[in-house]
Nucleic acid binder design. Sequence first.
DNA 1: GGTTAGCACTCTAGGCGTGAGAGTGCTAAC
DNA 2: GTTAGCACTCTCACGCCTAGAGTGCTAACC
Lengths: 354, 354
Amino acid sequence: MVRRIRPALGPLDLRAQAILRAVIEEYVLTATPVGSLALVEKYNLPVSSATVRSVLADLEAAGLLSHPHTSAGRVPTDLGYRYYVESIVETVPLPAVEQLMIRHQFGQVEFASEHWFRLAASTLATATGSAGLATPAKPVAARLRRVDLVAMHDRLASLILVLREGTVKQQLINFEQVPDRETLAAASALVNGHLADLTAAQIERRLPRFGGEGPVPDLTRRIGERVLRTMRAFDAEKIEELFSDGLLNVLAAPEFAQSDKVRRVFSALENRSYLGKLVSSLAGGGRVQVFIGGENVPVEMHEVSLVLAPYGQPGRAMGVVGVLGPTRMSYSHAIGTVSFVSCLLNELVDHLYA
Amino acid sequence: MVRRIRPALGPLDLRAQAILRAVIEEYVLTATPVGSLALVEKYNLPVSSATVRSVLADLEAAGLLSHPHTSAGRVPTDLGYRYYVESIVETVPLPAVEQLMIRHQFGQVEFASEHWFRLAASTLATATGSAGLATPAKPVAARLRRVDLVAMHDRLASLILVLREGTVKQQLINFEQVPDRETLAAASALVNGHLADLTAAQIERRLPRFGGEGPVPDLTRRIGERVLRTMRAFDAEKIEELFSDGLLNVLAAPEFAQSDKVRRVFSALENRSYLGKLVSSLAGGGRVQVFIGGENVPVEMHEVSLVLAPYGQPGRAMGVVGVLGPTRMSYSHAIGTVSFVSCLLNELVDHLYA
DNA sequence: GGTTAGCACTCTAGGCGTGAGAGTGCTAAC
DNA sequence: GTTAGCACTCTCACGCCTAGAGTGCTAACC
């Protein structure tokens, strides 16, 4: 699903690594091709610019750097970033100050899972200066905790499903005439008795067997079917809810000065199907993963990178948080931040499941 | 709040109106300044280009048209559009075919209010080629229908508020040790008995009076307070939920070829406070309203127009739907579409309230 | 008086050439 | 293996120019 190109070269010698690193970090900073002279001056390299030039030529031959034109400096390729991320950069944990600030923000917010994702996205956005992404922790297979029937008026009732993971789903049901309160309560009690703590699959098996029960068999059956349908829909929906924040950060980057590129980034984010795939591939567990520029399959994402991390409890409920930014992003910082936020969400989800 | 500039001129004579109309419609179509010759040819005007030129000069003097530079054609001003919208264009209802298609879509979707807003936004987006906007129908003052307490595990419970308008709010509550099922049920029954069908203000008055009741007075009191807080928050939140769709449509328009303009449009949409004000000013009732370019207060919205309509039941629950597009948009079509969709939502809300 | 043809005028968009500047790659010396 | 020196290449910014579009004015016309 993700075209992952491994650097097809032996380990670079230390000097080459240092120079690659310098090129990348300088380019991340300035967004302009970097030349040999600038490198020597800014990074106090113990060699002359001529030597640097020959190393740069080697790195270019290896496919790690490229050349917009003859008389321009070097620009990292996707492969260069990949090598940098995997072999050069050390993952620095987020500074304690920032950790504290973020923790504080999470302390401030209303204690309801929905707020956490929004906050995660916006926190990531401000901390990294890119766009923050977050999906809710989605249960692998939702389990019903309880249903409730509430009359809205004499022809409409509201069916409320509380799922074991704390999510609430609501559905409206039309009636010729809504049954009285006791009947509704009896029906939902019956449904609760039979279907509580079951998954959609289990409910489906159980459903035929409690067809004609209770004082109003039709009603019970109807509710049962609605419950099943709703839970099925919930299980099926991929990442319908992908919170994002700070898109403007990304659009402000100089590489998106032309509006068509802006539009491409934009449609990248609307490409839920690809992001959905990434998310589900990540949800298996593991740590922070990085998807650089052209490694992303959709063309509209060839100029952006994703730094994503799963969170939650494997096998129970998983979600993903991360960052979307220009390929030219500070990967070390992004990785550190995403990693921290995912740990934070882990704690919260753990708390939810005790 | 909205700087509304009324055209400060007497009624234009018919020929001038026809020419203004032609200029606007041609400009909407082509996005390039329109010249006198093109007008005569395309719109079969019974006069020569010289005559048209003198009329154009008059319209420009009146502030309805402007001139990018000496040798360019005319471009409508915001005032020109305003005059067009108020005095020239006849509001055409949406063609029956489109009406049917939209109705059909609404028939397909899950019967739950949340889906309607999303659908409204996306329908408007595709129908008008601009960005579609929709806010949920927000009750003037929410009324509690019922609360429910569900244990999640032994230290966490979920408090569920069903509001009379069909909305469901959920909150998590921490415990040292969650009380058993019966206690929770008793407590929520007590709360329901006292607070059902009340607004936040009423609950606040009632709250002190049922302090020490029931088997677990502390619990009851705690829930009561949480209920109040949640309902307060719900009443206070402006248009936290503004669904939008089809932003890419707008960004693709030639007037946003430079990326800084794109960014401005973008931040316009994130400017929830202004949109919120518009929404609440509209929510009083009334029909479709149009806000053209510079009539909008925030600078970042000076190049876009809004066509908004309220829907819902005045005094009970109101929301807003509409369209955001470039100033150069087909107002007649937008007005027709927005009007139709707001009527459709009216029907749905009516159904909700019976 | 309103309308029209004719015409000079104005302004922009785009193609072209030029020169400065940046950075390379090569070579020969260290 | 490293470095200084230097010729070479390419882009970017600037100014110039022309073609084209559209106006505004004037004088003739109905």
